[in-house]
Design a protein around this nucleic acid. Sequence first.
DNA 1: CTACAATCGTGAAACGTTTCGCTCTACTTT
DNA 2: AAAGTAGAGCGAAACGTTTCACGATTGTAG
Lengths: 338, 338
Amino acid sequence: MIKIASTIKDVAKYTGLSIATISKYINGGNVLDKNKQIIDEAIKALDFKVNEIARGLKTNKTMTIGVLIPDFKNIFFTTVVSNIENVLIQNGYSTIICDYKNDNVLEKEKFNFLVNKQVDGIIIIPQGDDVRHIKEHINKNMPLVLVDRALEGVECDTILVDNMNASYNAVEHLITRGHKSIGIICGPDNIFTAVERLKGYMRVHKDYSMKIDESLVKKGDNDVESGYTRLNELLDLQVPPTAVFVTNYEMTLGAIMALNERNIKIPDELSIVGFDNLHMARIVKPSLSIVVQPMEQIGEIAANTILRRLRGDMSNYPSMVRLKTELMINQSVKDLRG
Amino acid sequence: MIKIASTIKDVAKYTGLSIATISKYINGGNVLDKNKQIIDEAIKALDFKVNEIARGLKTNKTMTIGVLIPDFKNIFFTTVVSNIENVLIQNGYSTIICDYKNDNVLEKEKFNFLVNKQVDGIIIIPQGDDVRHIKEHINKNMPLVLVDRALEGVECDTILVDNMNASYNAVEHLITRGHKSIGIICGPDNIFTAVERLKGYMRVHKDYSMKIDESLVKKGDNDVESGYTRLNELLDLQVPPTAVFVTNYEMTLGAIMALNERNIKIPDELSIVGFDNLHMARIVKPSLSIVVQPMEQIGEIAANTILRRLRGDMSNYPSMVRLKTELMINQSVKDLRG
DNA sequence: CTACAATCGTGAAACGTTTCGCTCTACTTT
DNA sequence: AAAGTAGAGCGAAACGTTTCACGATTGTAG
């Protein structure tokens, strides 16, 4: 094994100053200019870097944030996380990322794993079933930020998109193009975003005095398979809808697969609006109209929120940020008017 | 602030035994059965957990692996990482993940960031330009595993797919369906996988005594935009190819977008074989023939390799694993024979 | 019964920082 | 000249573990 890294003791020996003086300088304390110079010289000559393990033992900080997400293969989650990691590393924090694979038991286990790793804070895209481990944690002195899903009874910083109005606007787009029979493929009732998106669908129907046909409301599991299955169920109805709104990316993928297999032409035979993402919208022909979420912004705001809390800035706690989505109108909606 | 977590001192006080005895028991040493029982009782009653910061200061281990990847939005990379994280967490390791955004300077910075965080090992999907920071690191007592790309002059454990034969098989499929004019959209020369995949294209041409038309060889940047641009360039040729092989996922996305915009029918007007992924293959109509990489396996082998090295098992070092890909034949290749 | 060996508990040093309070020096004011 | 004040360096304790070497106890063999 080659040379072990230098420690503050080596810097002290090199400079003739004490460990306390070196530490004071490193941490921004007052030292004489001539001592500053010689300490800098020593640090450079010895290639000294503070041992963050030792520092952590004393300060009880690990300069690490834990991020817990439901699915590493979901480009929405990974885009959010990419932006979180980017902001955090610029502030000297590392990011431990855990994938709980949409499994509530695994979520709790990995949450506890992060706590035991003594991360300084946790950013979580929660599942939403049993949230006791999160609730219990609120009373501890460690910042927690929820992303994408709010949790009932969990009062802490939360970064969301405005799912209800995202849905409202998407379905309104269909309504204003003359569609009266609009199906929805939404997620399960335990997922916050699924519930909110369905509410938007309901609300816009009510606002336009349109009756909701419960047989057009299909609940999936936010995965490709259920998107596929539910789309087929909608099309197998005696009177299928003329349009479908699919409320997440994976189910949108599945719905498109089902349409491809049935050789159904978009938008001639069925109009469709999906959720995410920009690339997929353009490789489906004709290009899909989709709700676009501000993933970069979600990640940045989540990271900056937790950094503020870590700095001791508790103003406006607990905050809830609801970001606007954008409806990207392409060619997958047929105009039934005229 | 509520109660601070218990320390080994509290357990010692509760049991009447010494800190050394508690530590010995925790770490698998011999203690009397009656003492084992009372220590277990104390641990449970006090909800004691070893402080890994303190342990790390003494043992110089952080139980953390750094993972450095080029792009968080790339589903190939994130799927690999998901599997890495899964294996590592089952072995008590946390995973710090950094995204260097295909930027060599950022790669070096984040690599050094991970080193300074004193991770126990690093798994990297390297970019391939300037690899000095990686080379310098090989001589240090910290395991390093390369994934997806080998690096010249860097001798360490490497987990790859057999890119050359993946490409060979894909193009052979086109050749054996009667295609004589086959274009390729491959990545840039500094990316290992791009070079290997182009080699496979060349080799199969040679093996079938087919002349390579250099104008059909287009080099992109492994992103959506260049896939789009290069596909258009191929189709703008005076005599366009009858088939195209695209050697990564993003460029495959871009190529499809270009085909959609030109209203070119697959496979009637152009046959196409892409790289990844399973979902995208089925949402393009007709479904794409694609090369499928064993992402789960790559991740698991990478994680298990680094764990072996961390346990001190240096057998077969440096190892190189080349995994087979699979050619998934769907409906995007026209049979020109007969 | 004695001698030897094995087992197990323990004290305390060490890991590399931070930080508090003390001390010394220099400067200023009376 | 003396007293008071401010600045800066420093010693050493502490953070929470690990681990080594030592001593005491227990068990076994002759």
